[in-house]
Simulated scan of single mutants.
Amino acid sequence: MKILITGSNGTLGAALKRAAQAHGHQCIGWDRSAADPLAPDTHAAYIDTVAPDAVLHLAIAATQSGRPNEGWRTNVEWPLALAEACAQRSIPLVFTSTALVFDNSESGPFTLASASNASEGYGLEKRRAEHGVLLRHPRGARVARLGWQIDPAGGGNNMVAHAAREMASHGAIAASSRWYPACSFIDDTAAALLRLIAAPPGLYMLDSNRGATFAQILQALSQQYGLNWQVTPNEDYVYDQRLIDPRVGMPDLAQRLPGLAQ
């Protein structure tokens, strides 16, 4: 397939490109000079020029350039415009959302029957985008809620890079033994997103954590990759963020981190 990817230079975008190319797909990153994300009237013509077989929308408002309402326009209006354009052309769309559509006022684990409740910020923007994407492209949109990504070889906003920064700054990593984060190895997430292109339209949740705490996960990562982290467990944060959706075939973290099963 020819796959058009927004956010292709990001942490997850790079992993997705590797996975797609390994399966023989052609990947094209969204060209912001050809179609401004904040100018929806340019999107349809750009999609026609690329003529993709599928669109995977990963991009978010990670950096601000100072344009008015940039976060909302990037995180909400851009995916809605993409959904409309894809619907008009019968192009499959996979849109990545987040576990942060659930705030911590109610604890999980969350299922598809759980009502998202984020009332501000990024979580609210993703809630609005989820609803709009599914409404505008009901026969071809797949919304995938993601947790924190684990990438032992990568940087950016992934769990390993975060922990490494904490270790470098403080000589130890404070980690709650009562927080169950939604999280997955980034390559497993990328593979699942590719599978969703052919899955029935609708809402999905991608999470590999079956029951490990943040402290346990960091200790297992340190053991598995010889990182020599000093993990200091605490009980400062009490929350179960796990996402339960067996349809997507996400592997258990313990398959990648045998230390969790010990």
Rank of each mutant, 00 (worst) to 15 (best):
P233N: 11
A44C: 14
A34I: 08
D207T: 10
Y180N: 06
H57Y: 08
N209E: 10
I217N: 01
A198H: 14
Q21P: 01
N117G: 04
A81I: 03
A15L: 01
N234F: 08
H162L: 13
I60Y: 08
L218E: 04
R195Y: 09
D36G: 03
L12K: 05
A113C: 09
A191D: 12
K126D: 04
G108N: 08
L12M: 14
D151V: 00
P200Y: 06
L38K: 06
I28L: 15
Q241N: 11
R178Y: 08
Y180M: 13
L134E: 10
H162M: 14
A61I: 06
I244N: 07
L12W: 01
A14D: 11
M250L: 14
T96P: 00
Y239G: 01
P251I: 03
L243T: 00
P258T: 09
A190P: 00
G71F: 13
L260M: 04
A115H: 12
G156E: 10
V160L: 06
S90R: 12
V231W: 00
G108W: 02
A191N: 12
L206Q: 02
I91R: 08
G66Y: 11
L243D: 01
F214M: 11
T98L: 07
N228K: 14
D48W: 07
F95K: 02
R195I: 07
P201I: 02
A172T: 06
G71Y: 10
D151T: 03
F214P: 00
S184Y: 02
V55C: 06
A191K: 05
G24W: 05
V238N: 12
P79V: 03
H25V: 10
L203R: 12
R127T: 07
S169D: 15
P258D: 13
A164K: 11
E130Y: 04
A62Q: 15
A191E: 14
Q21R: 11
R195S: 15
H170C: 09
C183F: 01
P37Q: 02
V94R: 01
S176L: 02
G29I: 03
A153H: 13
Q26W: 08
L93C: 08
A54I: 03
V231R: 00
P52H: 07
A191Q: 10
R142Q: 12
N209M: 04
S119K: 13
A220N: 05
A54L: 10
A62K: 15
D53Q: 14
H23L: 15
I173A: 10
D187T: 05
Q230A: 13
D31C: 10
H137W: 09
H131E: 15
A174W: 03
A44N: 13
W30N: 05
A192T: 07
R195C: 14
A118V: 04
Q64P: 00
G108E: 07
Q219I: 03
L93W: 01
M1I: 07
S119R: 12
Y180H: 13
S222L: 08
I91C: 09
G249D: 04
I217G: 00
K126G: 04
N157E: 14
L193N: 03
R247V: 06
G29Y: 07
A141P: 00
A182D: 00
A51Q: 12
A44Y: 14
W78E: 09
E106D: 12
L56W: 06
